[in-house]
Design a protein around this nucleic acid. Structure first.
Lengths: 340, 340
DNA sequence: TTGAAAGCGCTAACAC
DNA sequence: GTGTTAGCGCTTTCAA
């Protein structure tokens, strides 16, 4: 039998109310009484029934995260770090984190519906925003607290943390152009991902400002996995006039592209330049180390979580739309242009 | 105002009891009545208050997972896939998944204490078991349902799913020996990880059976990250008589070791053989593709979750100690011995 | 087949 | 400073 405040009340000969207030450190309880109660509680091994507390307070002290997955082998180092950022922050606030995994689509939306109508969580975190994001529309319509990692198309009237991908890609464009590259290809994810759009814009527009055109057949679409980076790079390298630089829109695809180039016997950083985006820990230890745009994923996770919990708690928030400036990390997967 | 069964009862002119039973599909309710109630519920947009249900039933319908992390950059592709396996299975059972991230140690144990004494979850999943695993001792002592991915030292009287790492490493040993390798090094994680112990045993014992000795200074300790694989490999390659094969105990460290070898100008698979363990998706797309032992992480996650939920639900379980036979995947990071 | 009533463990008006 | 009382929304005896 677990011990309840009623048991404590009986033991110390006080009412449950007093016990409750003492345990919650209300200041209208006699310090002496408070101590008696607390001692008794400790002695009896009392710990509150969280289910009862939550039910009573209509609060779950839990935030939710629904990870969009593709296929069964969902293996993205990006997410584990993001989760760590959220999880550790949540723990500081004594919040729990509920995680679901769903492929984008109907089932995913259903998970959102369940989460909010069952009030399983007090707030939600959205990742990998899309141009028209039905998740966000839904949460706004239902007036449910959420913070997203990423923005959407159109007016943005919600809290988010995002990296300035446009700027990040401008750095890449500047860099490659400076290195003499003109035949530049890219591998993007499907462009309804908002970050894909920003990254593409940043790259294309800046290149054009610099007088270089991003050719249509140099634009390939992948799905963020290493495999697709490999496959698209193979196609690019088979072209009669292959690119001298490949800009992958995330590190995983960049790794795949590197493999493809190496399979062709090319020396990366010399014969061809390849860049990534994200700077996952692995990027520093690939062969060769990857030139990429750094994204502080852990900190972003922490910030998103912080904003959300403050929101849920009705704490004041100074800034609820955070745009971070990324940084280009030049490593040896890139270098001066060399026409093959 | 959210709608409750009381509201429905009022509307249809029946008691809350009947409404409750109808909604839960009890068969002692007149089918006609049942339909009326269900229609009303749907019409009014009723959805049960999960908090109340849970409180009442003393069940959370939630399973917990506390991920052991090291340092802030916790980026292990292994875990995202494992989480997906658990999450998708949990969803089928309509269970939620609570995830915490803690560095091993005091804080971690505290998280376990909180989880179980607050009854935040109905059951827990343990990952990366250690030789003497205080988490497992604790859960057993408290008679709390759990299933682990991995075993411990000594008598194992709890449910687990594990891969037969001993066997997996025997495959590696056989293979390398057959390829002519005699100077074989390995990079293990700290050996209080149970899987490290098994993998080490499998490698060492089999090699000895084959007449090859695993030399003491060829045994390096890493921390499962790419970085440490790199660093330890650098040391190995600097030795007067470097190994002709490096057996990394997970893929991430193998990748790091590959980088180190490549930095030295070695051609992997020719000048030196490097093998991993896990077969994360990336292993097939590294350069060169990694020879490794396949571990069906997604399925393991799914199985662990399945066992745990069955246990929590008191459903019959045919086999609660599952040992899977791994498979060696030979790719091009390894080949015949070549003395440098 | 249906309803009345109790209670899960906790918090919070309100009164004393 | 402390106690009385009600109630959160639901399930579940038990009786009708």
């Amino acid at each position: 039998m677990t011990v309840t405040i009623k048991d404590i009340a009986k033991k110390v000969g006080l009412s449950v109310t007093t016990v409750s207030r003492a345990l919650n450190d209300f200041d209208d309880v006699n310090p002496a009484t408070k101590e008696i109660i607390k001692n008794a509680a400790a002695e009896m091994g009392y710990s509150p029934n969280i289910l009862a507390q939550r039910f009573q307070k209509k609060r779950t002290d839990t935030i939710g995260l629904i990870l969009p997955t593709f296929g069964p082998r969902f293996s993205d180092p990006f997410f584990s770090e993001f989760i760590a950022g959220i999880g550790n922050t949540a723990a500081q606030y004594k919040f729990d984190m509920l995680v679901s995994t769903r492929a984008p689509g109907a089932e995913e939306m259903q998970a959102y519906v369940q989460m909010i109508q069952g009030r399983r969580v007090d707030g939600l975190i959205i990742v990998r925003t899309r141009k028209e994001d039905s998740r966000i529309t839904f949460l706004k319509d239902n007036n449910f607290p959420f913070v997203s990692f990423g923005r959407t198309e159109g007016k943005i009237d919600f809290s988010f943390v995002d990296e300035d991908s446009v700027y990040g890609m401008q750095l890449v464009a500047n860099y490659l152009h400076e290195m003499g590259h003109r035949r530049i290809a890219c591998i993007t994810p499907p462009d309804d991902f908002m970050f894909a759009k920003f990254r593409f814009e940043g790259l294309k527009d800046r290149l054009e400002q610099l007088g270089t055109h991003l050719e249509q057949n140099y634009i390939r679409m992948g799905d963020l996995t290493q495999r697709s980076g490999y496959e698209e790079a193979v196609k690019l390298l088979k072209m009669p006039e292959p690119p001298t630089a490949i800009v992958a829109f995330n590190d995983l695809m960049a790794f795949g592209a590197m493999s493809a180039a190496q399979d062709k016997g090319l020396v990366i950083g010399k014969d061809i330049s390849i860049t990534g985006f994200d700077d996952i820990p692995m990027a520093a230890y690939s062969h060769p180390p990857l030139t990429t745009v750094h994204q502080p994923i852990y900190q972003i996770g922490a910030k998103v979580c912080d904003l959300l919990i403050k929101k849920v708690n009705n704490q004041p928030i100074q800034e609820d739309q955070v745009l971070l400036r990324p940084e280009l990390i030049v490593r040896s997967s890139s270098g001066p242009e060399k026409l093959v």
